[in-house]
Simulated assay, not measured.
Amino acid sequence: MRRGYSTITPAVVHALTRRTLERALGWTDYKRSVTRTQLLDLVLLIAGTTRTLFAVVTRYFGFSHETARQAMHANRGSWTNSRPGWWMPFTRWRGSRAGTGAPVDVCHRCALRPLYGDRSTPGIIGGPKKAGTSFFHAHATGVLIHKHRRYTVGLMSVTKGTKPHQQVQTLLDQVAARGLTVRGVVLDAGFDSGRPCCCCRNGT
Rank of each mutant, 00 (worst) to 15 (best):
H139K: 07
C107T: 14
G48M: 04
Q167H: 08
A111V: 05
P89Y: 09
V143C: 12
I124F: 01
P128M: 15
T67F: 02
V168P: 02
Q167G: 09
V168F: 01
R183D: 05
G77I: 05
R97Q: 10
E66Q: 09
M156H: 06
A177F: 06
E66S: 08
R150K: 13
R59K: 14
F63R: 03
H165L: 03
P164W: 02
G85V: 01
R97K: 14
P84I: 07
T80P: 01
G127C: 07
L172Y: 02
G48V: 03
K129N: 07
K160R: 15
L172C: 07
A47R: 00
N75A: 06
R97F: 05
V106R: 02
R178L: 05
I125V: 15
L53C: 08
V56R: 03
T162N: 02
Q174S: 06
G85T: 12
F136H: 07
T170K: 07
T58H: 15
M72K: 02
G132Y: 00
F61A: 04
R109S: 14
H165S: 12
S96L: 03
G161C: 06
T152Y: 11
G154A: 15
F136C: 08
A98G: 11
L155N: 02
C110L: 15
T181Q: 13
A98C: 07
V57L: 05
W87D: 08
V182R: 04
R76C: 01
V56I: 15
W86D: 03
V57R: 03
P122L: 15
F54R: 15
Q169S: 12
S120Q: 08
Q174V: 05
G101E: 04
C110N: 14
P89W: 07
V168R: 11
M88I: 12
T133A: 08
G123D: 02
T121I: 04
Q169W: 01
G123H: 02
L144V: 09
W87A: 15
V175N: 03
H148N: 11
R178C: 04
G95V: 03
G99T: 07
V153R: 01
K147W: 10
R109L: 09
H137C: 09
W79S: 06
G99K: 06
T91C: 10
N75V: 04
